[in-house]
């Protein structure tokens, strides 16, 4: 299934925040986890992810720490902060609301036809 990336872009912050909800991850791991969770549909590129992570870090929604990975290399891990978690919850609610609204609007259009 092809997904218009522009539709995803509007919610990309929510998606990234959600990827950090359960565990701290490094950049590539986030991309991979999103790809896996979306069955390969969402292929985020590093050029999109890192500026988002920078921004979230700048706003205080995530913090980054350097840790050694399993392979022994130092990596920058991103962790969700409390404000980040709050933001995620609020964005999720917004999404739920939007989803209902869009569903309703689409349904109306179908009836009109």
């Amino acid at each position: 299934m092809e997904i218009n990336q522009d539709l995803v872009k509007g919610n990309i912050t929510t998606i990234v925040l959600n990827a950090l909800r359960d565990k701290d991850r490094y950049g590539y791991e986030i991309i991979k986890s999103l790809e896996d969770s979306s069955n390969g549909i969402l292929k985020m590129k590093e050029g999109t992810l890192y500026p988002i992570l920078h921004n979230l870090e700048f706003e205080g929604y995530v913090i980054s720490t350097e840790k050694k990975s399993d392979r022994g290399r130092k990596r920058k891990y991103y962790k969700l902060t409390k404000p980040g978690l709050k933001l995620l919850e609020s964005k999720k609610q917004q999404w739920e609301g939007l989803k209902i609204l869009i569903d309703q609007l689409i349904a109306r259009v179908s009836y009109a036809k």
Partner: peptide, 22 residues
Amino acid sequence: HLGDPEEANSLYKKLMYQKLKS
């Protein structure tokens, strides 16, 4: 396999100026 460098550049620049402003 890396993403579009122009898009990344524009996002990074936006971020840099935002931080600079702050």
